[in-house]
Simulated assay, not measured.
Amino acid sequence: MMDTFRKTGPPSALRVEAAGLRWLAQAQDGGGARVVEVVAEGEGWLETELVQEGRADPTAAEDLGRALARTHAAGAASFGCAPDGWHGNGWMGEAPLPLHEPDEDSPGTWGAFYAADRILPYLPDARDAGAVDEEGATVIERCARRVADGAFDAPQPALVPGPVARLHGDLWSGNVLWSARGGAVLIDPAAHGGHAESDLAQLGVFGTPHRDRIVTAYDEVSPLSDGWQERVALHRLHILIVHAALFGGGYGAQTVAAARRYA
């Protein structure tokens, strides 16, 4: 019998999390990354399998890189689209996450989506928290304009069949569990359609073990676009500005420093 874990919280946050887990799990049959299994859900609670944690090792990290490439390759209808079965916005921690209805006819562009939905919505709260001052806000806004104009748009990795990848969306180290039975298991997604480089960049924000091996293995099966290394800080900008909005402190300085590179 499967050991399970039950969490409680805002009903909408748990429902979109469950939808995201199921959407990401669709890629597992094609070799995609393993995600924690949804066992049951109800109003204000979500029950998933319990992952007995072990230690990360290089082989598991390489396996995760190859599997994550196949998850991204499952694709999505449009930038910022919600996972199947969900209508409305999502959550990234306690921060609202703009999501849209899937639109295969008009997938949009990464730059326009990223500026409008992943950078600028969090700037007012980051300023109110005292994490970003007027000068810093100007830098972030200038960066966002360049992003929206497409200055940093780039092709998806080679395995992704269309313009939009299927993302975990909040892939920092705490959302990668290393199972005692072997391999990585992903939890707590903020799943949406986006650019694959965003997931890979987020892995480095708080020091995921063996990240270099994850990325190298990923690149071997799904080569990344030229110049991806120069875009890493830009793809981290979303998670940084969310942290600046929620927690203030030094996250604001990190956000401004990242934005300045592209402003």
Rank of each mutant, 00 (worst) to 15 (best):
C81K: 00
E53V: 15
L64M: 05
D63R: 15
A74S: 07
A60H: 11
F79E: 01
D84A: 15
H72D: 06
L99W: 09
L97W: 11
A76P: 00
M92F: 14
F79L: 08
H100N: 02
T71A: 08
L68F: 14
G65P: 05
D57W: 06
T59S: 13
L97Q: 15
H87E: 15
G80P: 02
G88S: 06
G54S: 01
L64Q: 01
R70D: 13
D57R: 09
S78V: 08
D63K: 14
E94H: 08
A95R: 11
E62T: 08
L97K: 00
G75T: 06
P102H: 01
A77E: 14
N89M: 07
P83K: 00
W91M: 09
G80D: 00
G65V: 05
G90A: 03
M92N: 05
A77Y: 10
A56I: 08
D84E: 15
D57E: 13
A74I: 07
R70Y: 03
C81T: 09
L99Q: 14
G90D: 04
P58R: 09
A56D: 08
W91V: 03
F79G: 10
W91L: 01
P58L: 00
T71K: 01
W86F: 02
H72G: 05
H100P: 00
L99A: 02
H100K: 10
G88R: 11
T71S: 10
P102T: 14
L99H: 06
A95Q: 15
A56T: 10
D63S: 13
A60G: 15
A56Q: 07
E62M: 12
E53N: 04
A76C: 08
N89W: 13
E53D: 00
H100W: 11
T71H: 07
G90L: 02
D57Y: 14
P98G: 04
G80H: 01
G88M: 13
A61I: 02
G93S: 08
W91T: 07
D57C: 10
G65Y: 07
P102M: 07
D84K: 13
R55P: 03
P102W: 07
A67L: 06
H87R: 12
W86Y: 05
D63C: 11
A67E: 14
A95P: 12
D84P: 12
W86E: 09
N89Y: 05
P83E: 01
